[in-house]
Amino acid sequence: MPLDLTEIERVASISREDFYNNYVKKQKPVVIEKLTEDWPAYHKWNFEYMKNVAGNQVVPLYDDRPVSHKDKFNQAHAEMKMSEYIDLLESKPTNYRIFLYNLVKQVPVLREDFKWPDLGLSLIKQMPMLFFGGRDSKVFIHYDIDYSNILHFHFHGTKRCVLFAPDQTPYLYKVPHALISREDIDYDNPDFEKFPALKKAKGLVTTLKHGEMLYMPEGYWHYMKYLTPGFSMSLRALPREIVNLGKAAYNIFIMRHFDNLMRKWKGQSWIDYKNEQAIERTHKQLGIGV
């Protein structure tokens, strides 16, 4: 039995007014297929180009190992030159990913390759973030710490994106004091006996191709799987909802520092406790096994 997923709505192009009124105001995801076709990046952004302009950059890499008390919040697992990393992506599957990296800051020439879309969002100009992954590599399901509205552009290959609205959180086994679900849940093939609440979750899915953009509203959970080696760029805007601004401030200034402190103090027992609580709280709230 697979997850209950509905295809995300798609449009070829859209006006500023229609995007804002029909998707931002309603906090509804959408894929815009042709938004980047007049960008230089649409024709230039591939692995070879990235090697040429950023090959000497040393980039942080993440893999799919479980969270450890030894790691700080969002701490990278390895480093590698971009040219070596791209060679690895093209040679074989790898779990190493580049996650939330401001490569554009390090390589300013990349700024000339894309445009800031006029879609009614006040995009943060200092934060174009890049993400790279190898075939079949996965990004743990999570929501973003700052509750941003996200424009997620994919390049070079295909990528499967699964989203859940914030109101689906009760079914996703959220780990307390964190932005993730239980890491032992396989969102491609979930174990409904161990995680029965997932049967109630209603999500959204799409497969992004080169140049397509996915709009992810604030606070949306997202799980990504690279079907082929590729990379993406996210542009973001602060949350519109005052309550989400408050949640973002709490996450950034209190939650992540508290979690780092508890990891140092309690060690692995803190991680284990949080994972146990993810199941206990979810099942208690839904009256499962009580």
Rank of each mutant, 00 (worst) to 15 (best):
D259H: 13
R240M: 14
K266H: 10
G246F: 08
S234D: 14
Y250C: 01
R240C: 00
A249Q: 01
W265C: 11
R256A: 00
L261P: 00
L261N: 10
Q268R: 14
T228V: 13
L261I: 10
G230E: 09
L238G: 05
R236Q: 10
Q268V: 07
R240K: 13
S232V: 08
T228Y: 13
G246L: 14
N251I: 02
N251D: 12
S269W: 00
P229L: 05
P229H: 06
G246M: 04
F258D: 11
K264H: 12
K264T: 07
I271G: 10
E241D: 14
K264S: 09
R240V: 12
L238W: 03
G267T: 09
Y250L: 08
L261M: 14
G246C: 02
P229T: 03
P239G: 02
K266M: 15
D259M: 06
F253P: 00
A248T: 00
R256M: 15
N251R: 03
H257G: 04
R236L: 07
Y250M: 01
M255I: 09
M255L: 15
V243M: 04
N251L: 03
R256T: 09
M255F: 01
S234G: 13
H257A: 09
M255W: 04
R256H: 04
F258A: 13
I252R: 13
A249W: 14
W265M: 15
H257L: 09
Q268S: 11
E241K: 15
N244W: 04
P239Y: 02
H257I: 03
A237Q: 04
L235H: 02
G230V: 08
G230I: 12
D259W: 09
L235F: 01
W270Q: 08
R256S: 10
V243K: 14
A237N: 02
F231T: 08
S232I: 06
T228C: 11
E241S: 09
K266D: 00
D259C: 07
Y250K: 05
F258Q: 08
